[in-house]
């Protein structure tokens, strides 16, 4: 028994060392009941992974806990086998839109520059190459012409592109995005997907919360179905099944026929 445990531990350590981002036993609670409970997640290098689940399933909470934005009750996070604190430079993060103050006196180009904070530090001089990188990132999302607008004076889809550009400016290996397609039109969605797939093809790892079930198989390689706990996780072909979806959404997806009791938990 003891021997098995040790072996399991060693195997998992090897799995985590090979994974860009691995989460184990993540549990977060804001009040009495846990928002996520004992979540395990292992990303694959060079893959695009979707987190899918109903509103309030804990998708944003899982991302925030994994990145150290909030403090979990319990849980372990490794980044390329190391501690998150030592690997922050390798992770880029696009929060859900609601976390941003749209009235803040900041221009689009300044927002993109924020992605370079860890390289610039507290007082590092902004040089020509930093500005060039910011302009290049804006160019990649097609927002060059809006560089000098205040951030709140853009449409929702344009804002989403700017935040993707800020993530690009982080020049990370792992890109974590919370609902990058929320409130964007088809053209912007295509543009964002193209950028993300370009990152994947360059060997980067992408993790995104996604709400449109119809496009999951088109866009993503792996999927994590979440409803407080992990319902199912793995390659889209095996995991993204009607049965698993019904379990994740409590049967509300198909019809009212589903008995909520039978899929609870």
């Amino acid at each position: 028994m003891n021997l098995t445990l040790v072996t399991d531990h060693d195997t998992d350590q090897a799995v985590r060392a090979a994974s860009p981002l691995a989460v184990r036993g993540m549990t977060v609670s804001y009040g009495q009941t846990p928002a996520i409970f004992s979540v395990d997640m292992t990303l694959r290098t060079g893959a695009m992974t979707a987190i899918v689940g109903p509103n309030g399933a804990g998708k944003s909470t899982l991302l925030k806990a994994a990145l150290g934005v909030i403090t979990p009750l319990a849980g372990l996070v490794t980044v390329f086998g190391g501690a998150m604190a030592d690997m922050r430079d390798r992770i880029a993060y696009v929060p859900q839109r609601t976390s941003v103050d749209w009235d803040f006196p900041v221009r689009v180009i300044d927002v993109v520059m924020m992605g370079m904070y860890r390289r610039l530090g507290l007082l590092g001089r902004i040089r020509g190459r930093h500005r060039a990188l910011a302009r290049d990132c804006l160019d990649r999302v097609g927002m060059t012409h809006f560089a000098h607008r205040q951030i709140g004076q853009l449409s929702g889809g344009q804002q989403q592109r700017v935040f993707l550009a800020r993530a690009l400016a982080q020049q990370a290996d792992i890109y974590v995005l919370d609902e990058p397609f929320a409130g964007v039109d088809a053209a912007t969605e295509k543009a964002i997907v193209a950028v993300l797939q370009g990152l994947r093809d360059a060997g980067k790892t992408v993790l995104a919360v996604h709400h449109d079930l119809a496009t999951v198989p088109d866009y993503f390689d792996d999927v994590v179905l979440l409803n407080t706990q992990v319902v199912a996780a793995g390659p889209v072909a095996d995991t993204f099944t009607e049965e698993n979806l019904n379990a994740a959404y409590g049967g509300r997806l198909t019809t009212a026929r589903a008995d909520p009791e039978s899929v609870a938990g």
Partner: peptide, 21 residues
């Protein structure tokens, strides 16, 4: 002067700032 950047970042987008450490 010293904490200008982190102050601006955490005021504008607190989750992102915390993600940066």
């Amino acid at each position: 002067w010293l904490f200008w950047r982190p102050l601006a970042l955490s005021t504008f987008d607190e989750d992102f700032a915390r993600g940066l450490g």
